[in-house]
């Protein structure tokens, strides 16, 4: 009796993205454990990827490249220099973020002071704490900009059906490309990380970095590209360290606007 490998027709359809319904689910289950069919799928993908080349090439207008390179340069400059401070107008819920960071910053400042008093031999530890303090101070300043800006949007991210319990809040300013995330989710399984994504109105999600399961009292500042508008934010469960594009299930989702 031969091994019931996947139907070759289904592999071609799957590679084309055309297989659907129960057949797709069954094939995906089979592929997890069948190395032969995995190899057949690679071959099917090699064939299907070539289909796109059949479309005649079209040279883009020069403006497209110019605009792309302008954005790239703007991002480089933005990464090199912090966004200037905006007019302060604190929102009440933003105080929670400020409180978490304020506590952390004050604790670090105190620890730094105590260490300085105690022992000069602990210079390296002191320098590390000072560096951490500077980072947190910068984060606090960035958070103040986002919470104080009148055009910042509040988004609540809610748990998904059959997903782990949790909820999070995001305060995001598209103009600055900056946000503040706070939330709590059930601990991630071993070897997994929670990753935050900005979902734009078009195009693929943009990673906003890893987030801790318990980010309730220590909000995290998220820096993206200035001008990057969000249709939604989502948290997915990814392999440890995160991925360039989402691969795991969505755990929390919240629509913006």
């Amino acid at each position: 009796m031969t091994t019931p490998h996947a139907n070759p027709e289904d592999l071609d359809l799957y590679a084309l993205g055309a297989l659907d319904g129960e057949e797709k689910q069954s094939l995906e289950v089979h592929l997890r454990d069948c190395s032969y069919c995995q190899q057949q799928l690679v071959a099917a993908r090699q064939r299907t990827a070539l289909v796109g080349l059949a479309a005649p090439p079209v040279a883009p207008r020069p403006q497209v490249k110019a605009a792309l390179m302008d954005k790239v340069r703007a991002e480089k400059q933005s990464a090199a220099s912090p966004t200037p401070s905006s007019k302060a107008r604190k929102k009440r819920w933003g105080l929670r973020f400020s409180f978490g960071f304020g506590l952390a910053t004050a604790a670090l400042a105190l620890a730094t002071f105590e260490l300085a008093k105690q022992d000069l031999d602990r210079g390296e530890q002191l320098r590390q704490l000072q560096a951490q303090h500077a980072q947190d101070a910068a984060a606090l300043q960035a958070m103040g900009q986002v919470t104080g800006a009148p055009d910042s949007a509040q988004i609540t991210l809610l748990q998904q059906p059959n997903g782990p319990p949790g909820q999070a809040h995001m305060l995001y300013n598209a103009r600055m490309g900056m946000g503040v995330y706070s939330g709590q989710i059930a601990p991630a399984p071993s070897g997994k990380s929670y990753q935050l994504w900005l979902v734009p109105s078009s195009g693929a999600p943009v990673s906003a970095g890893l987030v801790d399961a318990n980010q309730q009292n220590g909000a995290v500042v998220v820096r993206l590209s200035p001008g990057l508008a969000a249709k939604a934010f989502a948290v997915t469960l990814e392999p440890q360290g995160g991925r360039p594009q989402p691969t795991g299930p969505m755990v929390l989702v919240g629509a913006a606007g």
Partner: peptide, 15 residues
């Protein structure tokens, strides 16, 4: 959104 999020990075491997 859900479908956009399902874009698998692994799809490009060996294509």
């Amino acid at each position: 959104d859900r479908e956009v999020l399902e874009e698998e990075e692994g799809d490009y491997a060996n294509t």
